[in-house]
Design a protein around this nucleic acid. Structure first.
Lengths: 218, 218
DNA sequence: TTAAAAAAGAACTAAAGTAGAACAAAAGGT
DNA sequence: ACCTTTTGTTCTACTTTAGTTCTTTTTTAA
């Protein structure tokens, strides 16, 4: 609808009208839009009148009226769209999102490959990882809540005190703190309401150790 | 109804008019729709005029007007957008990582723009976000530990019970659960060892609400 | 393969922007 | 009322930018 110069001038007239209450002269507009001659301003004003943005009161000086302004989109929306474009720059890695794992009473085993989770590359660098959805509150005192997603690095060894995914008797998987006690292994929930389990080392396999945690609110 | 090229051009003209207030030239449209010659743009414009989507002010440059927009997108465009959305799910967004925020005794205010953090796109969809490093243990019973990174969605309003970044007296920022009590505001730490603070509403500004949480082990 | 549609490119025409000057009309002060 | 200053209008000449038309090439689909 408008050329850039026309738009610039219209905005200047609008701003001046609002700020000072009186209309700028052609010479003032001339400097505002960066021209050296009034004739150019005249042409721009004529164009704006013709397009219905301005009205000139005939035979009057400094007597322009704004009829309408081009309606611009709120800049917040523009920013949002820019953000989306930038988003494509950074990559993530998809890791398998296995079903829910009981952080309370052990329930489900690890299986399935269908669902995947995109996580920032830095969180899953150097190693093989998978994600689990936490169900239950047995690790609540370690700040691991029901519904949290934990990212596990695959490994079959762990240090004393690590929080690990432990597979018991090849059938139940659970997330617990692990400690060795002689030939036995302690699986320690982090919740006073739960009991530590003591098992012979032969019945417990480490399937990975806790690497990071994601939580979404609402 | 419209070909994909026509649709794309119409959307570009519409967007340009709304964002800048002035009409794009044929050369600008040419690059926007990925053509190398203006003549192609000309044909597209003619088609859009003929179909009643655009009006050309005769014998004027940069003088297109949108008459209406199509209610249906061409299916090729729909496909393209689907792909784009899928790509976004596998992308991260960089959000500003402001300094540490005290979850214990309030210490530092929010400032700085230098550090940034890459987070999965889904975690920061629809809004403006920033990240904070938690320092202290005042929110430990909400599963928010010392050293955790929280992602905050900018907003100045919160529901009763939300965990928010609260700015007290314009100088100290803190992460707490918020509750309204008459004209007062309660800032509730989630740790029995800490005291709830009661402040007049006028001294507290909400700077964002807790949206998600990241934790890295080791 | 071939016919039709889309795109590229060049050439041309038209409009917009620039500048300067001359002049006419309005505004302001005395 | 008068004169002076400010402001607006018109004209010419020219440059740059933009729009149109045409021919050739490429792409696409039948």
């Amino acid at each position: 609808m408008l050329t850039p110069k026309q738009y610039k001038l219209l905005m200047f007239v609008n701003k001046t009208l609002k700020e000072t209450g009186c209309c700028p002269s052609f010479d003032e507009m001339k400097v505002a839009v960066g021209l050296k001659s009034k004739s150019g301003v005249y042409a721009l004003i004529e164009a704006l009148v013709e397009r219905g943005f301005l009205r000139k009161l005939p035979h009057k000086a400094r007597a322009l009226e704004i009829i309408r302004l081009p309606k611009l989109k709120p800049s917040a929306i523009v920013e949002e769209e820019k953000k989306r474009d930038e988003a494509l720059l950074n990559a993530t890695l998809d890791i398998p999102l296995y079903g829910k794992i009981a952080a309370g009473t052990p329930i489900e085993a690890i299986a399935d490959e269908s669902e995947r989770l995109a996580v920032p590359y830095e969180m899953v660098r150097g190693g093989q990882f998978y994600a689990l959805k936490i169900e239950g509150d047995s690790m609540i005192d370690a700040g691991i809540l029901n519904g949290d997603t934990v990212i596990i690095r695959k490994t079959d060894t762990a240090q004393n005190g690590d929080i690990v995914v432990a597979l018991v008797d090849n059938c139940e998987a659970t997330l617990k703190q692990i400690k060795k006690d002689g030939s036995d292994v302690l699986l320690i929930p982090k919740n006073a309401a739960y009991q530590t389990r003591r098992l012979p080392g032969s019945r417990v396999k480490v399937q990975g150790i806790l690497s990071s945690l994601l939580r979404t609110y609402h």
